Amino acid sequence: MSMDAERDTKSRFAAQWHYRPDVPIPTSPVFSWPPHPRAIAVWFAARWFVFGENLVIAVLALVTWHYFQPPLERMVTFEIGWIAQMLLRNFILLVAVAGSLHFFLHVRKTQQQRLKFDPRDLISRGRLFSFNSQLKDNMFWTLTSGLAFWTAFEVLMLWAMANGYAPVLGWADNPVWFAGLLLLTPLWISFHFYWIHRLLHWPPLYKLAHALHHRNTNIGPWSGLSMHPVEHLLFFSSVLIHWIVAAHPIHILFHMQHQALTAVTSHAGFEALLVRDRQVIGLGNFHHQMHHRYFECNYGNLEVPWDKAFGSFHDGTEESHKLFLARRRKMMGLQNSS
């Protein structure tokens, strides 16, 4: 590549983004070798001992279990009453989180373009989307299939626990492991997400299901759970590990709320929520925003760096973008020759 072409690549990559955080984007040190205990401790502390998504959702799961969840003994048999109660609760959570973020960030634009990755507005009209609208399309798939699968997996797991089919862990059984399981849940979700996401990029499954989610090249809060039912089935299936790994119902609620609500926040289109010019909570990340723009990079999350291991990691730098473009040209060449 000539020097002029290299400069052009840099300028075009930079011009596609209104805001880019500090790069290169770091990944979790948990799986680095040799191990770095101090870095791992700092990484966990930054995600659990400050006001952020993990802590908020852990508290939410605890409050849900004590005040908004039918008792386990009631779940021995499937009944419309308690299932409808859980469905309504999850509906309220989705509307509260996705609706408020969309309203303040994309309708009222209370922080204008500050910390907004993509300079473009969401698409107000487009034949690509159901109902000719990105917002209506995203809300429809989120509040029908997304809400149904989220609730169905919660119902299944709690019914299984109530009947003794899935092992139950009590706080008194092992307090250290009880707390540790909360800390490890986001890592397992990340581990699982990479593999089902790579599967969904297999051309037959992409065409059948994942293309619906990728209608959103520019994303908003309602985009996160805007998926085909096949994708929702795979996406939420990570919780099935608790048919083997003993857990408390609080862990199930935390697991499912984490998957559903961080899907919303991670697609907010902004790095953080600002209140009086101060960042109060982190939202989206540039890592996944690039996946929606470029498709064939950053299939996983930063917690478990599978993308680094398999060469699909884009760290947000111009150098990384050049490597990505070369890799994509090679992929397209292989597809065209097959």
Rank of each mutant, 00 (worst) to 15 (best):
D8V: 08
F13M: 07
W17P: 00
Y19A: 02
R20L: 14
R20W: 09
S32A: 14
H36W: 04
A46I: 01
F49S: 04
F51P: 04
E53S: 15
V59F: 07
L62H: 11
L62M: 14
W65T: 01
F68P: 00
M75A: 10
I83R: 00
M86R: 11
L87Q: 12
R89L: 14
N90R: 13
N90P: 10
V97K: 01
G99H: 08
S100T: 15
H106Y: 11
Q111K: 13
R114P: 09
I123S: 14
G126Q: 04
G126F: 03
S130T: 15
D137I: 06
W141E: 11
L147C: 09
E154Q: 13
G164C: 06
V168Q: 03
L169K: 01
A172T: 09
N174Q: 02
V176M: 00
W177F: 15
L182Q: 01
L183E: 00
I189T: 02
S190T: 04
G220K: 13
S223R: 02
P229C: 01
H242S: 05
A246M: 04
F254A: 00
A263N: 04
V264S: 07
G269W: 12
F270S: 09
F270K: 08
A272T: 06
V275I: 15
G282T: 10
G282N: 11
F286A: 03
R293W: 04
C297D: 08
N298W: 04
G300V: 10
L302T: 15
F310W: 15
F310D: 10
G311D: 11
S320K: 02
L325Q: 08
M332F: 09
Q335C: 12
